[in-house]
Design a protein around this nucleic acid. Structure first.
Lengths: 197, 197
DNA sequence: CGAGTGATTGACTGCGTTCAACCGACGTGG
DNA sequence: CCACGTCGGTTGAACGCAGTCAATCACTCG
């Protein structure tokens, strides 16, 4: 699903910019100057702590926008964004974005709906903090399911164990061991290291 | 800060309803039929798991609205809401709410800003999952600060240790022991069991 | 005063982490 | 075609911190 129609974006001054795999798009605590919408590629929004441990706030791909909240709330970025693959991203400066919003109430409403869904997802992940690793992984798989491609009735989870760990706040080893138990109990399937749910 | 002007709310059909301390306002997984805005009292939005352990998603008081995301995203409630004190809450049915939104673009925009702030707060809490109890408690205190009343340059934290535990995903004992260490290191103050930050 | 709620303490436990090593698939360059 | 490097996945052993359990204390209010 595309957040804002490309043509409208361009008319209001958005510019496509290429990012190399691994290139930073913005940094935590920075002031937000641009609206970002992905034409192609995938982007990871994440935090990193003093010990170098990472937490993934979200992963975004074709058509998605990301890093928009500060454009509305005057906050700085709560996390950093990095290109996980080569990517092309439309950037529209905040002034243009705000004018566009005023002009198109449907777009305004579109962000209400988008933010509402994000809040729902965040709430679902947050409540897992008091649950077992298995429950936390299941919550992540459930949330991630709609983003996955279906193969023979099951969803192929396109993330590495490390990424699942970063998204759930667990460690890789815990994810691996928990998934193994879940395979035994027919809660997930693994074919050649690939994970299905 | 009041989310929607009371007079407008009433004109569009909102009705004030009293809730007794401990009374449920809505339940997790329920379909959302009403917009809720607090006139007086405080409300806790929370989850409870199979073992009876609770996680607090948010605490709201005078002027705040809560449980709005599903009105935009067609999701069910991600959590339950309960009156922590006797409370009076304006309720406006979803049809009225949606008509009101269409009529007042500023209100629409107000929700964008509100949701953006909530997403920021949720992101700040979420990233703490990979940090120490101390860091998690500090993040909570920081977020909660603006809601607290100032006394002699410090903020009186109006929550019990149990509530801090429920909000951070820690256990009461861990909160108590961590706070104790933080007092020694002058990171917080405690006067007669009351917590200051 | 007694009941009730919240705060506190100590002893023990166990689960997820940590650390270290190894495996296996894939791709690239000589 | 093979050697090698890289990246992700896997395993085992040991550890330690937050959780668990149970008891007691402190304060407030009717």
């Amino acid at each position: 699903m595309t957040q804002i129609d490309i043509n409208i974006l361009i008319v209001w001054g958005a510019v496509a910019r290429k990012f190399k795999k691994g290139e930073m798009i913005f940094w935590e605590d920075e002031v937000a100057h641009f609206y970002h919408q992905i034409q192609s590629g995938t982007v990871r929004v994440y935090n990193i702590n003093d010990e170098g441990r990472e937490f993934t706030q979200g992963i975004f791909s074709d058509g998605n926008s990301f890093g928009e909240p500060p454009l509305f709330s005057q906050d700085t970025y709560a996390a950093s964004a990095i290109a996980m693959t080569d990517a092309v991203i439309y950037k529209l400066n905040i002034e243009g974005f705000q004018r566009l919003l005023k002009e198109y109430p449907e777009v305004q409403h579109g962000f209400n709906v988008l933010f509402a869904k994000r809040l729902y997802d965040k709430a679902c992940m947050a409540r897992e903090i008091i649950n077992s690793p298995e429950s936390r992984i299941l919550a992540f798989l459930k949330k991630t399911k709609h983003a996955a491609t279906k193969e023979e009735g099951l969803f192929r989870i396109p993330y590495t164990r490390q990424e699942i760990a970063n998204s759930t706040g667990l460690r890789v080893e815990t994810v691996i061991r928990t998934l193994k138990r879940m395979v035994k109990e027919n809660k997930v399937e693994v074919k050649g290291h690939k994970l299905f749910y």
